[in-house]
Write a protein that binds this DNA or RNA. Structure first.
Lengths: 162, 162
DNA sequence: AAATAAAACAGCATATTCTGCTGTCTTTTC
DNA sequence: GAAAAGACAGCAGAATATGCTGTTTTATTT
């Protein structure tokens, strides 16, 4: 269930590969090899190894949500009625199934979960919020509508190399 | 500065391509064509068009942050001392430059910005929080440390097709 | 310090893929 | 109903992927 915790020391070439693939996940192996000053074969070996060891979890096309009709993002703070493990479990099982839920983090502090949702419009926001508050055990909720995206990186800092 | 707002009706093949590339950004064009029941040439044409029209913004390798030493994620709510455009502008210019800031959304509601940061440990958290609160105009802040990642999708729902 | 073992590398060769071009068929427009 | 535009499959040359081999470098052991 849990992923491997095994770790090894990545040298600067590995880090350069990760950085390059994070910036352009569809770069050809030949060009990637040039970028990290390696010939194609060992470069491919390293990429395969980084994939199999779990440093690289996959590759994704970044899509423009607004052009696909998803115009609104909201952050919803959820507090559960009780803090028992059973209630947490029920909430998790339901929340992951809602397709408009982009992310859901359990947090320490004034509430229990911070849920990020992406919806087409206010009508769909109400619909999704309805689905969330109807999950058994959900107490209070508070929504913060996103007015402006200032930064959206989703990348992992890898720049200890050079 | 702003991206094109032009939009067109995407047919089910375009949507299938977007869905496939979101799930596997490094799939070969030949296999992508098989997946959407097309021959390679028109499939490549469609991908190029989706890229040039901005539906696809880029391709990214998803990296395992924990294996790269980034073990903590925190959500920080920021309230500015005043709500003038000049103060907003200064805040934005500073916050985007902090590499540990993964995302930053201006929100409507009880505070002004919701900032997501990714750090190695508590020591670095304090360091990054220090950088944030020293941005001119920053008033109060409140941090919610992430205890558990329940869902992390980052994808856009594209499944209106077949 | 020398010998051995292990790891990383470049180069090569074949299989696969990319990608521009052409002609055909379908759909749209006038 | 004719013309134009768009979408498609197939083809071919160029580029890339990828397994294999031998060499060099690095690490380990004696």
């Amino acid at each position: 269930m849990t992923t491997s915790i095994k770790t090894r020391v990545l040298d600067r070439i590995d880090l350069a590969i990760l950085d390059a693939l994070q910036r352009n996940g569809r770069i050809s192996n030949v060009n990637l090899a040039k970028e990290v000053n390696l010939s194609p074969s060992p470069c491919l070996d390293r990429v395969k190894k980084l994939e199999s060891e779990g440093y690289i979890e996959g590759y994704t096309a970044r899509l423009n949500a607004a052009k696909l009709g998803q115009h609104l993002v909201a952050h919803v703070e959820i507090t559960l009625k009780s803090s028992t493990e059973a209630v947490f479990e029920v909430f998790k099982q339901h929340i992951v199934k809602i397709p408009n839920v982009v992310s859901c983090d359990m947090v320490a502090g004034g509430f229990d979960y911070l849920v990020k949702i992406r919806v087409q419009d206010m009508r769909q926001y109400r619909e999704v919020l309805g689905q969330i508050v109807e999950i058994p055990g959900v107490g209070t909720n508070h929504t913060y509508m996103v007015i402006e995206h200032v930064k959206e990186d989703m990348g992992v800092e890898v720049l200890n190399y050079q």
